[in-house]
Amino acid sequence: MRASRGMWIIVLAILAAGGFAVCAPDAAAARAALAPEDCVKCHEAPPADVAEGGGKHKSDVTCLDCHAGHRPASKSNIPRCAQCHEGKPHYGLKSCLECHRNPHKPVQSLVLAPKTTEPCLTCHTDQAKQLKENPSRHSGQFCTNCHDVHRKVPDCVKCHRPHSAEMAQGDCRKCHKAHRPKAVAYGADVPNRDCGACHKQALALLSATETKHKSVACVKCHENRHKAVPECQQCHGSKHPAAMMKKFPKCGMCHNVAHDLNHWPEGAAPVKSKAAPAKSGKKKP
């Protein structure tokens, strides 16, 4: 009886061991299967960084899209950036982490080294084109001389004196674009005082005149482009007979400069046309 009972115990033990052997791999596999929400259970900082400033690392991928598996089962679970980022000149740069210090918030962690230009231009191609096609002292500067922090736009007055004490940072950008500063262009909202900061004499004459030009904005005549000088006929048409215009082809010959119409300084007078010398009326012998 005791022998029979012992035999049954051995049989049951063998069956139990066999069942465990069959179930153990499934249980191990179940334990090894990870989900993105599992990562935060151990790794607190990276998920927090992704949530704060992950950009597309937050919206387009999960932890497991980059980190395939987990150590020690997966020994190469730190991916290369080129695994996803390819097809653009910027992605061909080496040592991504020199600038993007934290891949979990790649833009917020961007740190620019001093005297850096070429890496910037692989993304900012429009700015590179403007600097090349419009040479100025800005063209010879390193990008990081002005943009020492990514996306930082410095105040012009940090380096440049404003044209007048009334001018603020916003006034600079109305006429000067940082990557082509000498290609002065402006809109209809630039006041005469801004123009007069450089063109002092012209503004003084215009302010003192009694003609209708006094109420006209500088940018109305000198439209869109700096140093553009319009023809008077653009606004006034042809007021005088053709014969008179032939004698006096320039309006200013009679009307003085546009900023000071019909006002001649003391001792000055309108330019006379060069008329043909009068005949004496005497007949040749």
Score class of each variant (00 low, 15 high):
Ala3Trp: 10
Gly6Lys: 14
Trp8Tyr: 04
Ile10Tyr: 03
Ile10Gln: 03
Leu12Lys: 08
Ala13Gly: 05
Leu15Arg: 08
Leu15Thr: 10
Ala17Lys: 00
Gly18Ile: 13
Gly19Arg: 11
Val22Thr: 03
Ala30Arg: 15
Ala30Tyr: 00
Arg31Thr: 13
Arg31Trp: 01
Ala35Pro: 12
Lys41Asp: 01
His43Cys: 08
Pro47Val: 03
Asp49Gly: 13
Glu52Tyr: 05
Glu52Asn: 14
Gly54Asn: 09
His57Asn: 13
His57Ser: 14
Ser59Pro: 04
Asp60Phe: 06
Asp60Tyr: 06
Asp65Phe: 02
Cys66Phe: 13
His67Thr: 13
His70Met: 12
His70Trp: 07
Pro72Arg: 07
Asn77Cys: 10
Ile78Pro: 09
Pro79Gly: 15
Arg80Leu: 12
Cys81Val: 13
Ala82Arg: 11
His85Ser: 11
His85Cys: 07
Glu86Leu: 09
Gly87Thr: 12
Leu93Val: 05
Leu97Phe: 03
Leu97Val: 02
Cys99His: 01
Asn102Met: 02
His104Arg: 13
Val107Ile: 13
Pro114Phe: 02
Cys120Ala: 08
Leu121Val: 11
Cys123Leu: 12
Gln127Trp: 09
Glu133Gly: 04
Asn145Val: 14
Cys146His: 01
Cys146Val: 11
Asp148Ala: 14
Asp148Val: 09
His150Trp: 12
Lys152Leu: 12
Lys152Met: 11
Lys158Phe: 05
Cys159Glu: 04
His163Thr: 14
Arg180Tyr: 02
Pro181Trp: 11
Pro181Thr: 05
Ala183Pro: 06
Tyr186Gln: 00
Gly187Val: 15
Ala188Glu: 06
Val190Asp: 01
Asn192His: 03
Gly196Phe: 00
Cys198Gln: 02
Leu206Gly: 09
Ser207Gln: 05
Glu210Val: 09
Thr211Met: 14
Val216Gly: 06
Cys218Glu: 01
Cys221Ile: 08
Glu223Trp: 08
His226Met: 14
Lys227Val: 15
Lys227Cys: 15
Val229Ile: 08
Gly237Cys: 03
His240Tyr: 08
Pro241Val: 14
Ala242Gly: 11
Gly252Tyr: 00
Asn256Phe: 01
His259Arg: 14
Asp260Gly: 11
Pro270Phe: 06
Val271Ala: 15
Val271Trp: 11
Pro277Leu: 08
Gly281Glu: 07
Gly281Trp: 02
Lys283His: 07
